[in-house]
């Protein structure tokens, strides 16, 4: 065991990154605001990336269409929020939250159903053929973006936040947006839920085993194709949930939202290691923090910074920070 492992292993990386950023930023209040923003952004990206990572790890499917679920999730949530506009501005916290959960719920449910159809129609015929997977899922992504254009048009859509989640919490000099806290907590809750399912249930045991060695899972008597469908639906639902949260975070969405986020999502999956929920969380937090710190310190380097982060991590750990073990 290396010295890094003895004191917490790769889980220390976000702490190290935050400490380095603190030195460069200098102002504690700005640093704290950026750190919270980075954590909440990281949690939203985690929602989108975790499903893709599991799909990659378990099914060996390169799904470039994953961002379509992010986009649809954002637009469906925006539509539901617009329809429930009265609830969003009501004095009742219950109505505020109900509107938000209705929007997230609608997006997530759509993601699950669309994920099922996507897996059956688009992905199933091209299992074990990476080239065709890339081509067909890219094609599906283009079709999905055109569908969004046809339904919602090309004009950016304003997304309203519930009244209860607008504004900021002020702690001394530190200003923390309430929506970001909510996004962080929701992402954390999803992570805990996923962790418990994967580590405390037989279904989770099967998924973890399937990520390592699909053939052996089948040889033990389990139909892995059924597991594939379930994981694909869950992954797509999480992407749509992430998209719905991102819509509220950005406040303005365009049909390109999924495509723009996909670069970050792929970086997270690669940094974290395929098939690993812990890896996705770690990668997402690193990417979120890095994006916010660098956007503050050197805005022009914002996207490049995460590319550099990915390159550095891959040079150090070619399989990512926490890849699922492969049998």
């Amino acid at each position: 065991m290396g010295s890094l492992d003895r004191i917490g292993g790769v889980y220390l990386l976000p702490v190290i990154l935050a400490l380095i950023a603190f030195v460069f930023i200098g102002q504690p209040s700005s640093w704290a605001t950026l750190t919270v923003a980075g954590l909440s952004m990281g949690m939203m990206i985690f929602l989108m990336a975790s499903g893709l990572s599991l799909i990659f790890g378990l099914m060996d499917v390169l799904n470039f269409g994953h961002s379509a679920f992010v986009s649809f999730g954002a637009f469906i949530a925006a539509t539901v929020l617009a329809a429930l506009g009265g609830w969003l501005v009501a004095d009742s916290a219950f109505l505020n939250i109900a509107a938000l959960f209705a929007a997230i719920g609608a997006a997530t449910a759509f993601g699950a159903v669309a994920g099922w159809a996507f897996e059956r129609v688009i992905v199933k015929p091209v299992y074990k053929d990476h080239l065709r997977q890339i081509l067909i899922t890219m094609g599906a992504l283009i079709v999905a973006e055109q569908l969004i254009l046809a339904i919602w048009g090309g004009v950016p859509i304003q997304v309203q936040r519930p009244a209860i989640l607008t504004g900021s919490i002020i702690l001394g000099d530190v200003s923390i947006e309430i929506y970001r806290v909510f996004a962080f907590l929701l992402g954390l809750a999803v992570y805990v839920g996923l962790y418990l399912v994967l580590n405390r249930t037989r279904l989770g045991l099967l998924i973890r085993a399937g990520v390592e060695n699909r053939e052996m899972v089948e040889a033990l008597g389990f139909r892995i194709d059924r597991l594939f469908v379930g994981v694909f639906m869950a992954g797509s639902a999480l992407a749509a949930m992430g998209g719905s949260m991102w819509a509220g975070y950005q406040g303005l969405i365009t049909p390109a939202i999924g495509g723009e986020l996909m670069i970050l999502v792929f970086i997270v999956v690669i940094i974290g290691g395929l098939g690993s929920i812990q890896g996705s969380l770690l990668g997402a937090i690193l990417v979120g923090l890095m994006a916010n710190y660098v956007a503050f310190l050197a805005p022009k380097l914002s996207l490049a910074s995460n590319m550099l982060l990915m390159m550095a991590i891959l040079l150090w750990r070619p399989y990512g920070l926490k890849p699922a073990a492969k049998g």
Binding site: L205, R208, A209, E212, N213, M216, A219, L220, A325, K326
Partner: peptide, 15 residues
């Protein structure tokens, strides 16, 4: 065909 990321118990439980 061992699942390396699973414990001995989990490997057996799966079977």
């Amino acid at each position: 065909g061992i699942f390396g990321g699973l414990t001995v118990e989990e490997n057996m439980r799966l079977a």
